[in-house]
């Protein structure tokens, strides 16, 4: 049973069609990497899964629920923003530019969701936040503000913040693209660790090596459509489509 299923997803910004009918499904426990040239619509698709963008046509289901809608009596009803917020609880997201809350310390960032969304007691939330920071290797940075942390450290706090909501699905939107080269490894390591623990992940990335090692499936997108899908060994080493071959020839 697919945890995420997308059928015929279309999305335009003004007159530019960014997604032209994307089909994709991700099983629970799977790691899927979205690859492709910039402007292919990878990030936009990821944002649609979390309803940060509304789609123009098609449908996305997460855990059997239509994203942004509820089905009653054979009809789909658009959800209110606060109901969408409830849907998003089960889906963690990590952004290219971290987007940590700058006015809160690392541990406060991580505990923010549990305390103010899940209504966990502050004590329990802070304990769990410290444990999560320990898991991403930042136990000693719990009381630092984001501006006191390196990019790699900030991104690891951001991952801990998403995990604090106990999501069943994690979305990564180019999580290492804004990092200095020497900091990329520490973030990818945390992500690989998550994958080993069985987290379902959709990762938009340019890190071919990560995709090869960690992904169960690689999806190659060009111009708002999926061109090729398959296990990394196949898509990365023996691509069938010419577009995939051209792209890989440039990045490898």
């Amino acid at each position: 049973m697919s945890l995420v299923r997308a059928v015929g997803v279309r999305k335009s910004f003004g007159h530019t069609e960014v997604l032209r009918g994307v089909d994709l499904s991700v099983d629970a426990g799977q790691v899927v990497c979205l690859l492709g040239p910039s402007g292919a619509g990878k990030s936009t698709f990821l944002r649609c899964v979390n309803h940060l963008e509304t789609i123009d046509a098609g449908r996305i289901w997460v855990d059997g629920q239509p994203v942004g809608f509820t089905s009653r009596g054979g009809k789909l009803f658009e959800l209110r923003e606060r109901e969408v917020a409830r849907q998003r609880r089960g889906v963690g997201m990590v952004f290219q530019r971290f987007n940590l809350f700058p006015h809160r310390t690392a541990v406060e960032n991580v505990a923010e969701g549990p305390v103010h969304v899940l209504r966990t007691s502050r004590k329990a939330a802070v304990d769990e936040a410290r444990a999560l920071l320990d898991r991403v290797g930042l136990a000693d940075k719990a009381d630092s503000y984001p501006h006191q942390l390196s990019g790699g450290q900030q991104q690891r706090v951001a991952i801990a913040r998403a995990l604090a909501m106990r999501p069943q699905l994690m979305l990564f939107d180019e999580p290492t693209s804004a990092l200095d080269p020497e900091l990329v490894g520490e973030v990818l390591e945390v992500m690989a660790d998550l994958a080993r623990d069985g987290m379902t992940m959709i990762v938009v990335t340019h890190e071919i090596g990560f995709a090869r090692q960690v992904a169960d499936s690689v999806v190659f997108m060009v111009d708002g459509a999926v061109v090729e899908t398959g296990p990394p060994g196949q898509v990365l080493d023996n691509p069938r489509q010419q577009r995939t071959q051209q792209f890989l020839a440039k990045v490898l």
């Binding site: 979390n50 940060l52 923003e81 606060r82 917020a85 409830r86 998003r88 609880r89 889906v91 963690g92 997201m93 952004f95 530019r97 987007n99 940590l100 809350f101 923010e112 969701g113 103010h116 969304v117 951001a158 913040r161 998403a162 604090a164 909501m165």
Partner: peptide
């Protein structure tokens, strides 16, 4: 990005 991060952890608009 701050608003998006808040949305992503399931915060309501209020």
């Amino acid at each position: 990005g701050q608003v998006e991060a808040a949305k992503a952890i399931g915060m309501t608009p209020a």
